[in-house]
C-alpha cells in the first residue's frame, strides 16, 4: 500500500515538472508544422519532422555567425574576468589596510547600481573615446568584452574575496620563504586552490553574458556583430511573425543552452546556489 503511494507521488512530481516545461515542448513541436497545421491545433503532433523551417530560420537569423559571436564574447570575457578578478581579490584579501577596504567596499556598493542608471552616460563615454582617440570601444566585439569585464568585476571579486578569506595563509607564506615571487605564489600555489570558486564565477558569468541583451543592443550596431539574443530580437522585429519559422529560431537558440546544461548540470546548480548564498 505504501509502495503504491510512493509511486503515485513520483509520477505526480514528474508530471508537474513536465507541465512546467510544456511551453518548451510546444515551441518544439510547432517548429515542424506548416501554416495550416499550426492554426488547426497547436498542441497536436506534427505530420512530419522536416527541417525546412530550421534552415530558413538559420538563414534569416544568420545563426552560425551570431552563435560564433556569442561564443567569442562569452569565452573571452569570462577568461579575462577570472584572471583579473582573482588577482585583484587575492591582493585585496591579503593586504590588511584601509586602501583595500575602501576599494572592496566601493566594489560591493556598486552592485546596487542598475544598468539603466549608467547606460546613457556609458554610451556617451564610449562613443566619445572611440571618436577622439580611435580606440575601438564602440560597435566592436572587443569593446563589448571590455565593458563586460567592468560590469562583472564587482560580483566576481566579491566571490573570490570571500573564498580566499576562508583558506589558510600558511601555504602562501611557505612559498614566499622559498623565494617565489608574488606572481609565482599566486599562479602556482593560490590559483589552483581557488578552483571550486573559479567554477562558480565562470558559471555565473557565462549565464549572465550569454543571455545579456541590453548592453550588446546599445553597443553593437553592425548586423554581422550580433550575438544570439540580438539576432532573436531583430528576427522578431523585422518580419511580421511567421510563427513556425519563429519557433524553429527559438528552438535553435535553446539547443546550445540545453547542451551546456546537460554537460555542466552539477556545477551549474552548485554554482548558482553558492553565488546566491554568498
Amino acid at each position: 500500500m505504501k509502495a503504491i503511494g510512493n509511486w503515485s507521488k513520483e509520477i505526480l512530481l514528474i508530471l508537474m515538472a513536465l507541465v512546467f516545461l510544456s511551453p518548451i515542448y510546444i515551441i518544439f513541436i510547432n517548429s515542424f508544422k506548416n501554416r495550416r497545421e499550426l492554426y488547426e491545433n497547436t498542441l497536436a503532433f506534427p505530420e512530419e519532422f522536416g527541417l525546412q523551417y530550421y534552415t530558413a530560420a538559420m538563414e534569416r537569423m544568420d545563426f552560425f555567425n551570431a552563435f560564433a559571436n556569442s561564443i567569442y564574447v562569452t569565452v573571452v570575457s569570462v577568461i579575462f574576468i577570472v584572471i583579473l578578478s582573482s588577482m585583484t581579490a587575492w591582493m585585496l584579501a591579503r593586504s590588511d589596510n584601509w586602501v583595500s577596504t575602501v576599494i572592496f567596499m566601493t566594489l560591493i556598493a556598486t552592485m546596487l547600481i542598475p544598468f539603466q542608471t549608467i547606460m546613457m552616460p556609458l554610451m556617451q563615454l564610449v562613443t566619445g573615446i572611440s571618436r577622439t582617440t580611435g580606440i575601438p570601444l564602440y560597435n566592436t566585439l572587443s569593446g563589448l568584452i571590455f565593458m563586460n569585464i567592468g560590469f562583472h568585476a564587482a560580483l566576481s571579486v566579491f566571490l573570490y574575496h570571500g573564498f580566499i578569506k576562508s583558506i589558510p595563509i600558511s601555504l602562501e607564506e611557505a612559498a614566499t620563504i622559498d623565494g617565489a615571487s608574488k606572481f609565482g605564489v599566486f599562479w602556482r600555489v593560490v590559483f589552483p586552490i581557488l578552483t571550486p570558486i573559479t567554477a562558480t564565477v565562470m558559471i555565473l558569468n557565462v549565464i549572465l553574458i550569454w543571455n545579456d541583451f541590453l548592453l550588446p543592443s546599445l553597443t553593437l550596431i553592425d548586423k554581422e556583430l550580433r550575438t544570439i539574443p540580438l539576432s532573436v530580437f531583430y528576427f522578431f522585429g523585422e518580419f511580421t511573425i511567421e510563427w513556425n519559422l519563429a519557433m524553429a529560431g527559438l528552438t535553435l537558440t535553446i539547443i546550445p543552452v540545453v547542451i551546456f546544461y546537460v554537460l555542466a548540470q552539477k556545477y551549474i546548480i552548485k554554482g548558482i546556489g553558492e553565488g546566491a548564498v554568498k
Binding site: 583579473l84 578578478s85 588577482m87 585583484t88 587575492w90 591582493m91 585585496l92 576599494i103 566601493t106 566594489l107 556598486t110 547600481i113 549608467i118 552616460p121 556609458l122 556617451q124 563615454l125 571590455f146 565593458m147 569585464i149 567592468g150 560590469f151 568585476a153 564587482a154 571579486v157 608574488k182 599566486f186
Partner: peptide, 16 residues
C-alpha cells in the same frame, strides 16, 4: 595585481 581590473571597472562603472 589590482590596477588592470580597477581601471576597467572605474572607466565602465564609476565614471559613467
Amino acid at each position: 595585481f589590482t590596477v588592470p581590473l580597477l581601471l576597467i571597472f572605474t572607466l565602465i562603472v564609476l565614471v559613467p
